[in-house]
């Protein structure tokens, strides 16, 4: 049981890092990125290819994953320049599909649908059975560092500009902000975080394959961020843990409702995730942890 909970907490921590990535792009800047899983895939593949094929150390592979996905994020933003809302969502969805298709077909690079197995796991040989708890601690530390950084980002003037762009890019432009530059930066930062999450997953599971990177995963993270509270980083983390808890705890439902067949239960699990989201949106429309917005105060009254 303990090792199961450790494994699930590791998944939740990786999802939480992904949630933070989405929160930078969508929660803070208002850019709907349905291609999140594409960045996650690029991060995983870059680190896997460099460590498996070229024998790079794991830390360097992860660093390269961050750099590569940041670059991919920045470059894709230029392609998305004129797109907002639904159009942006559709194009980013396409981006993730392109990444998956490339991973499936460029066999010389990605080993195609066979996937890359034997991705090195840090200190696996030295730690032995302690690898799983140690990796959980590592993921939680990474999550903590990323959370601290994006929290700092949110509170900074930079974060304020992102919020202004989210509310109305034109007004932000009129106020003298270079909207494109901020969008590129937000996408690069979000992409880098998603890439880091991808590398974390690859070096944990030691096997990646294009089939992992399906849109369903993006949907889970959207659910996590929505449930937790769009724009609130703590909310994104909480939401990710809730999603994994929901997905996993429903496995045990079979003992509680034995009259349902496992086939029905499998569908019911997906259904319950949707129902949970609806309930949150009905009862707490701004999520479990609403975004903390600075209180508007009258500068004159402060004196």
């Amino acid at each position: 049981m303990t090792s199961y909970l450790i494994a699930m907490a590791t998944f939740a921590a990786i999802y939480a890092v992904l949630g933070l990535a989405l929160n930078v792009m969508w929660g803070m800047t208002g850019m709907v990125n349905l291609g999140l899983v594409g960045f996650y895939a690029v991060g995983a593949y870059v680190s896997a290819i460099l460590t498996v094929k070229l024998g790079w150390p794991i830390a360097l592979g992860m660093a390269a994953a961050i750099v590569a996905t940041a670059a991919v994020g920045a470059v894709t933003t230029f392609g998305l320049l004129r797109l907002r809302d639904d159009y942006l969502a559709i194009v980013t969805l396409g981006f993730a599909e392109v990444v998956r298709t490339v991973a499936e077909n460029e066999i010389w690079l990605t080993r195609g649908t066979d996937g890359i197995s034997g991705i090195p796991q840090p200190l696996k040989a030295a730690l032995g059975p302690d690898f799983n708890p140690a990796y959980l601690v590592f993921c939680l530390v990474v999550l903590g560092v990323v959370l601290a950084l994006v929290e700092r980002l949110r509170a900074s003037p930079f974060g304020r500009v992102l919020r202004a762009i989210r509310e109305d890019p034109q007004i932000a432009a009129v106020a003298g902000k270079n909207v494109l530059r901020f969008k590129v930066k937000a996408f690069a930062i979000g992409g880098a975080i998603a890439g880091l999450a991808g590398a974390l997953y690859g070096h944990y599971s030691s096997y990646i394959v294009p089939e992992i990177y399906v849109p369903l995963l993006t949907v889970y993270i959207f659910l996590a961020v929505t449930a937790g509270g769009v724009g609130n980083n703590w909310g994104a983390v909480l939401g990710a843990f809730i999603i994994v808890f929901f997905l996993e705890s429903t496995r045990f439902l079979i003992q509680v409702i034995p009259w349902l067949s496992p086939v029905q239960l499998a569908s019911l699990r997906e259904f319950l995730v949707g129902l949970g989201l609806l309930l949150v949106l009905l009862l707490r429309p701004r999520g479990l942890l609403p975004e903390p917005l600075p209180k508007l105060s009258d500068p004159a009254a402060r004196r």
């Binding site: 369903l216 996993e248 496995r251």
Partner: peptide
Amino acid sequence: LSEDDQTNPEAGVRGARKLIDV
């Protein structure tokens, strides 16, 4: 016992962990 792998390796690993660990 049975678990749904959702025809997805990531979900399959989570299901297998439950079967093996729990």
